[in-house]
Design a protein around this nucleic acid. Structure first.
Length: 813
RNA sequence: GCUGGUGUGGUGGAAUGGUAUACACGUUGGACUUAAAAUCCAAUGGCCUCUGGCCUUGUGGGUUCGAAUCCCACCACCAGCACCA
């Protein structure tokens, strides 16, 4: 019996999408309760900075993907937390304020409204009752509270340090914010500047951050980036006496095994020993060199490349091992902030030392013989054996592998008191203060009597005051310094006159812990209540861009470890699983940017095709992690696919199972979609739904088949499936249904195609009943009857035959 | 230079030891239309002596009955780090 609808409606996404978005909101469909008999799933997007340009389709690849996951896990029976908020402190709003005089809070609010609308019209299933904004005093109260905890624990310290300074942004930067010697944000070459700073001791956590990252379910490349950034290396500090002086020079090395090959020592231009050991006749030259190199910008340093420069101090150090004199040179290839700022030169087995020795005609000694067995004098860079080999010319180390030799010599040096084993890191402490307005005020007071005094917790939040001038001062103070009635205050300890700290926190502060506030966003008493924190943490699946691999993702892990130690959170790591989205480039292959005029916004796509088409296309473009150019023509195919589904689903249905092939395909499809979503393989999930649609386009389905198909499609196209669900007379809402069950008997076809090969080449296929599939003899004899096979076996002796049940039979002749 | 990754049609890609090129775009032809769009149908890796056959997953080798998939070497590209001792 056929059933038909009274009216066959055409697919008009605009009509249905807004209607359901409103209905979902009214019925609080996506609110997550804080307790539930269901298992929990915390699915989190990296929250956006509310830029005035709004968001483009690249941002929405993240949001639609995580939304598919959130919707999928809801119908799989999980209590899903899927929130959204705004990382709203930062330079663009402040720069706009400088230009226009409009307060950043006003522009920020406007931008948020726009972006929120973009998200809502895409049908993203966020729990908006948990929305947060890092610039809300009720939020940054807790950012400041965490800072006070860091201060209490001695993890925040004040120092006047030469730091990376962006002359355009007029603020200091963290090491992580300097990319190729340039400001991460604006691209201006970074300078060195002596500025009073608040610095966080992230280096105390280097080993914990390193260990913790090992077991996380994160992309390998991001884990490696963090491991490399932390840059742990084990070595030894060797002390050398300076001849004819009571001074000593300490050199860090990871390769003490080659120390018999040392022929010189190089110290960096910042090294304090320079003034103490430089001989009179070299003084002028050394002074000139130091002043030339020390004030150079990062950009100039990079421009110099590997070319070696340097000057001799006139002094010599003594190598304890063999009594040799090592001339002490000054060179800028030795960096002041790496190791001890002094290096022992082993030009035979270190390419930089080799280049330096060549430049200044210093002796080169071979102490390692590599795989190539070359024992000749080292005269070319190609002969410099750095990584492997056996020690030679080194007394008691001779004949040892370099790694064994390393242990032997370190023991030897430590025993004689000539060296101490040490661990060095690439990671530096986090330059935490910014000399800008639009950030969290640092809740500290400078008192002439008591020194630095934290603001009492009950006085938080310390609100950001209004200012007249947003322009950064460039002096190392923020524009807050001009708000005298705010700056001048009384000391909480002694009650005397005191000054507030005027620096603000960096962009990264608010995002270091926001995932905790989503759990308990309205709590006035605590950052997060322990009960709900234990229920929801850790974040089960975190989704965002790889540009945060060593910034946000390292900083937030650091704060989380501190919060873990003081008992605020129950997990040592915040993000259990991380997926990294690939860039979406413009159709021209360049980055989408307003200035290039190649930006595609979700609004444009939704106006033309509807939100469901945008969502499905974002998933269908290619693998989630791939960099892909936006293709404005391909999207038609997705729209066509959805229109076809509409036609199939809104047409007549049949009561009985007429076609068991469709049932088999549908059951397999249900399994495949589930697996694909869990592995973020949305492109193949959608492709298989397209195949299904093409298969049934001229067929009739049963009501139950339609319902099951709509449920598995619903995470991708939530509006259309909700509408069709209603048209099929089903109760609201499709998004509260359970994932369809599959039946084992429908997971296999009645007959299975077996490929017949001769010598590995496909020559024929046989359709075999499922019950016969294990019977090799039967299939062998059937295959031999095939004329196509006979043709290739003719006149040849079959030496062997390999049968893989249900797949392939291969004759070997 | 170091670390990690990737190489498949005109394009995005599928297949992780068993029919390479699923799905989609694009292109070509056809149907419908006065016409166009939309839609539908068909074809679409290359070559040849074309009812058939040969070749093809960056290049060269290897393992295997069988390799895009595993191993070795090389080449190219992408990302990150980089005079890190």
């Amino acid at each position: 019996m056929l059933r038909s609808f009274l009216v066959m409606k055409r697919y008009f996404p605009k009509e249905i999408e807004l209607k359901w978005q409103q209905k979902w909101q009214e019925s609080n469909l996506y609110q997550a309760p804080d307790s539930s008999p269901k298992p929990k799933k915390y699915i989190l997007d990296m929250f956006p900075y509310p830029s005035g340009d709004g968001l483009h389709v690249g941002h929405f690849k993240v949001y639609t993907s995580s939304d598919i996951l959130a919707r999928y896990y809801r119908i799989k029976g999980y209590n899903v937390l899927h929130p959204m908020g705004w990382d709203a402190f930062g330079l663009p709003a402040e720069n706009y304020a400088i230009k226009t005089g409009i307060h950043p809070a006003i522009t920020t609010a406007k931008n948020i409204a726009h972006i929120k609308k973009q998200m809502q019209q895409t049908g993203l299933s966020y729990d908006w009752s948990r929305e947060i904004n890092t610039t809300d005093p009720n939020y940054y109260k807790w950012t400041q509270w965490i800072f006070l905890k860091l201060f209490e624990k001695g993890l925040a310290y004040e120092a006047e340090a030469p730091i990376n300074w962006c002359p355009s942004c007029k603020t200091g930067l963290a090491n992580e914010e300097v990319v190729n010697g340039k400001c991460e944000r604006c691209g201006t070459p970074v300078e060195k500047k002596l500025v009073r700073q608040w610095i966080l001791r992230i280096t105390y956590y280097a080993d914990k951050l390193l260990e913790g990252v090992q077991n996380l379910d994160w992309p390998r490349f991001i884990k490696d980036m963090q491991i490399n950034w932390i840059g742990r290396k084990e070595g030894i500090n060797i002390t050398y006496k300076v001849q004819g002086s009571d001074q000593e020079v300490v050199c860090f090395t990871t390769r003490p095994d080659t120390n018999f090959g040392a022929t010189f020592i190089v110290i960096g231009p910042e090294h304090p020993l320079i003034n103490k050991i430089t001989k009179k006749e070299h003084l002028d030259e050394v002074k000139k060199y130091v002043s030339q190199t020390i004030n150079r910008s990062e950009e100039e340093r990079i421009a110099q490349g590997r070319a070696k420069t340097g000057v001799f101090t006139g002094s010599y150090a003594i190598n304890n091992l063999n009594g040799k004199r090592l001339p002490i040179w000054v060179s800028d290839f030795v960096l002041g902030n790496v190791g001890t700022g002094a290096v022992v030169g082993v030009p035979g087995h270190d390419i930089r030392d080799f280049e330096f020795a060549k430049e200044f005609s210093l002796p080169i000694i071979r102490v390692v013989v590599g795989k190539d067995k070359d024992t000749s004098e080292i005269t070319t860079a190609a002969q410099v054996q750095e990584k492997e080999g056996v020690i030679t010319n080194s007394e008691f180390l001779d004949g040892l592998d370099i790694h064994e030799a390393s242990t032997v010599i370190m023991d030897h040096l430590e025993k004689r008191g000539w060296g101490v084993r040490v661990v060095e890191y690439h990671l530096r402490d986090w330059i935490f203060s910014r000399q800008r307005y639009w950030g969290e005020p640092i809740p500290l007071i400078h008192c002439p009597n008591c020194g630095i005094v934290p603001i009492p917790e009950n006085q938080l939040p310390l609100k950001l005051p209004e200012v007249k001038e947003y322009e950064p001062t460039g002096t190392g103070e923020s524009p807050l310094a001009q708000v005298t009635d705010w700056v001048n205050t009384t000391c909480p300890k002694c009650g005397g006159p005191a000054r507030r700290e005027t620096n603000t926190m960096p962009q990264w502060a608010g995002s270091c812990w926001y995932f905790l506030r989503f759990i308990d966003p309205h709590n006035q008493e605590k950052l997060v209540s322990s009960e709900v924190e234990r229920y929801w943490m850790p974040v089960d699946w975190y989704i965002g861009g790889a540009e945060h691999a060593v910034l946000h993702l390292l900083y937030s892990r650091f704060w989380h470890k501190v919060l873990y130690e003081i008992g605020v959170v129950s997990t040592p790591e915040p993000f259990q699983k991380l997926s990294s989205v690939g860039l979406v480039l413009a159709a021209d292959g360049r980055k989408m940017s307003k200035s290039l005029g190649n930006v595609v916004t979700p609004d444009q796509i939704i106006n033309k095709y509807g939100a469901d088409t945008l969502r499905v296309y974002e998933g269908f473009m290619g693998p989630f992690e791939n960099t892909i150019s936006w293709d404005p023509t391909s999207i038609n195919g997705v729209y066509k696919f959805l229109t076809r589904i509409w036609e199939v689903m809104s047409s007549e249905y049949i009561d009985s199972l007429a076609n068991s092939k469709i049932e088999v395909v549908l059951n397999k499809l249900i399994v495949k979609i589930g697996n694909d979503i869990e592995n973020m393989k949305f492109n193949t999930a959608i492709a298989s739904m397209m195949e299904f649609t093409n298969l049934v386009y001229h067929e009739k389905l049963t009501l139950d088949q339609k319902k099951r198909f709509l449920i598995v499609l619903s995470p991708f196209a939530p509006h259309m499936t909700e509408e069709l669900w209603q048209m099929l007379g089903q109760p609201y809402s499709i998004h509260q249904q359970a994932w369809p069950e599959v039946e084992d008997k429908y997971l296999q076809e009645e007959q299975i195609m077996v490929v017949i090969q001769v010598n590995g080449k496909v020559r024929d296929q046989l359709l075999i009943d499922r019950e016969m599939i294990q019977d090799k003899e039967l299939i062998l004899s059937q295959a031999q009857k095939s004329p196509k096979i006979q043709k290739f076996l003719d006149g040849k002796e079959v030496k062997n035959s390999v049968y893989v049940p249900g797949k392939v039979l291969n004759f070997v002749t």
